[in-house]
């Protein structure tokens, strides 16, 4: 019977630097590891890991397994899984934390099935049961209409964690830790996929995730045009970005990159203006971290008013232009 020890974070790099989700996982992993009186380690696998290892230590890791291999330059499941599976078997952790990101969504279930264990995806909350010392895993289900608490019945206990759900520790460059350069062979003959092309479809202007203000439209917008006129005018005035709920993206009114929600982007701006958005749970899952939500909807019963701090009941065609105009005057004065 294998012995399981420690907490392992499967980290990610973004543009060569430690990804923000990895700092968040380390913050949460540190707390869990301290409570279990265990070590916190972090896997970083890329063509070049470099300084990111030291960053992982500054954000809470005791040990960093740095795996460098040319085949890891761009995430491909069949290459990365060889590394993640080998390391997970060698380290044999009690707990594995992975980000609910593009890479985590693709890799975590594969790793769980390879290790013969379960993974609870998209967790919002993690804690240790004081009696059993097992990981208590809370995640939204039914499109956010309920939450479920899971306990793993096999080891290691694996979870993915939603972005922005956990806080990183304060960066401390003097923290002590060990970087372990780790060599893992990748058999490229086992890679059954080939990336022919990578295409960036970046929206012009401010990135949705970084925008302090988001003006978002829903199914009630009725078509693509108001996104480019009424919403854009308001967003421009507030130096913000335009977003959307799922129906406009599904209907092709806006690009998928603007989709905010459970299966789209998770955002947490200072101000989130939801226009003609009913507020289905699967949408609010993507914006409920916003500091202030403002809702404009013609249906006074719309669920979005339960999430919002300020609201106006009315047709967006009437409310928004008047709002924008008045605001223009106020901001100029």
């Amino acid at each position: 019977m294998a012995e399981y020890k420690g907490v392992l974070v499967c980290g990610e790099l973004a543009d060569g630097k430690l990804a923000s989700i990895t700092a968040e996982l380390l913050g949460c992993g540190r707390k869990l590891a301290d409570e279990l009186k265990e070590n916190l380690s972090c896997l970083l696998a890329s063509d070049k890991v470099g300084e990111a290892s030291k960053e992982a230590i500054a954000f809470g890791a005791d040990k960093v397994y740095a795996v460098e291999h040319p085949a890891l330059k761009e995430y491909q499941a069949d290459s990365y899984m060889q590394v993640a599976e080998k390391l997970a078997r060698d380290v044999s952790p009690l707990v594995i934390l992975i980000g609910q990101t593009s890479m985590g969504r693709d890799s975590a279930p594969r790793l769980a099935f390879r290790l013969g264990t379960s993974v609870t995806t998209d967790c919002l909350n993690l804690s240790i049961d004081p009696a059993t010392k097992l990981l208590v895993q809370t995640r939204p289900v039914y499109g956010g209409n309920a939450q479920a608490v899971f306990i793993s019945e096999s080891m290691p206990q694996m979870v993915t964690v939603r972005t922005k759900a956990m806080s990183p520790l304060e960066r401390n460059a003097s923290r002590k830790g060990e970087v372990i350069p780790t060599k893992i062979d990748i058999d490229t003959s086992k890679v059954r996929t080939k990336v022919l092309e990578t295409v960036k479809e970046e929206a012009v202007g401010i990135k949705l995730e970084d925008a302090p203000v988001i003006v978002s439209g829903g199914r009630g917008m009725g078509g693509p045009q108001p996104f480019q006129t009424i919403l854009k005018e308001l967003a421009d005035l507030l130096h913000g970005a335009v977003g959307a709920s799922r129906p406009p993206a599904d209907n092709g009114w806006v690009s998928e990159g603007l989709h905010i929600g459970l299966t789209g982007k998770i955002v947490a701006p200072d101000i989130y203006i939801a226009i003609a958005i009913s507020g289905a749970s699967q949408h609010t899952a993507g914006c409920s971290g916003s500091k202030h939500i403002i809702a404009i909807n013609k249906d006074p019963e719309a669920n979005i008013f339960r999430e919002a701090q300020f609201g106006v009941v009315g047709k967006y065609e009437d409310v928004v232009p008047a709002f924008t105009n008045k605001l223009k005057g106020l901001l100029a004065g």
């Binding site: 300020f310 106006v312 009315g314 232009p321 709002f323 105009n325």
Partner: peptide, 16 residues
């Protein structure tokens, strides 16, 4: 939620 009202929807928008 604080609902902002007005005689018309446009007025409510301006008040918001």
């Amino acid at each position: 939620c604080e609902i902002i009202g007005g005689d018309t929807a446009a007025e409510a928008g301006a008040k918001l």
